[in-house]
Simulated assay, not measured.
Amino acid sequence: MRRFLRDNALSLAFGLLFLLSLAGQAFAGLAAYNDRRLTHAAEPIGLLDYLTSADFAVDVAENWQSEYLQFFLYVFATVWLLQRGSPESKPAGRAGLESDEEQQIGRHSTADSPKWARAGGWRTGIFSMSLGLVMLGLFLLSWLAQSVAGMSAYNAEQLTEFGDPETWFGYLASSDFWNRTLQNWQSEFLAIGSMAVFSVYLRQRGSPESKPVGAPHHVTDESG
């Protein structure tokens, strides 16, 4: 058990932080939701009802989709785009998909290489893009969930104010949907762009996301 905890500490720690923050969001969101209901002279609801509501679903989904969009774009962008001095960037001259030898696929694979990296053909082709494709799929699914839950929450609010409900396509073109979406996207783009630049000049000793403390600023693709 101790070895399992040591070997999986990073994923376990962030999994625990995720659950704790999700629980905190649930209780805080319930309080805010019931405050809004009271302003409309409606009865407050319980935690279970809130967890199964469109309001909770859209708040969760809109954050998930922006996070997966960030990773999808970063995974694909770093194939072609470089940032001199960043440990997150490949060095100059290596932009692109790189050779089979550099990627250790096909006849250049080793006995320890994943099976699909050694298989060749379509299986190696899919496996070679699997990280980005999974991130893209999770982004699209969470964005779809956001749109459906957002439409439901928006229409519920419209009905309380005697407004007309929107269709799904109508909601996709609405300012409410794009306001929810873009306020998350811009923060993700800012954060990842800042990380790419700050990691050129700043250090975090012992972190693989940083260069060694004594590495020159211009050194690229080197982790501490």
Rank of each mutant, 00 (worst) to 15 (best):
R203W: 00
V134M: 03
L5C: 13
S128F: 02
A119E: 11
W122A: 15
L48W: 11
W116Q: 08
E161P: 05
A77I: 14
F18I: 00
N63K: 15
Q158M: 10
G93F: 01
R118V: 02
Q204V: 15
F71P: 06
T110Q: 11
L81G: 12
D7A: 13
L30K: 08
F4S: 11
D176M: 10
Q103H: 07
A191V: 12
W185Y: 15
L190Q: 06
W178G: 03
D35L: 11
L69N: 01
W143T: 03
A156W: 02
S53V: 02
K115W: 11
E188D: 12
Q83S: 07
R203A: 02
A191W: 13
L131G: 07
Y154F: 15
D112V: 07
F27Q: 11
A42I: 04
S21T: 14
S194W: 12
W64G: 09
V200C: 08
Y68E: 13
N179Y: 08
Q104M: 12
Y201W: 02
M135S: 15
K115E: 10
P114L: 01
P91L: 02
A61C: 07
E166K: 11
A26L: 09
S142I: 06
M195N: 00
Y154I: 09
G93A: 06
H108V: 08
L5A: 15
A57T: 02
R3S: 14
L51Q: 01
G121K: 03
D100I: 02
G29F: 02
G29K: 00
Q83C: 14
S86E: 04
F18R: 10
A61I: 00
L73S: 06
E166Q: 14
E102C: 08
D100R: 07
G150R: 06
A57H: 05
R36E: 13
N179F: 12
A111S: 13
L17S: 06
P216M: 04
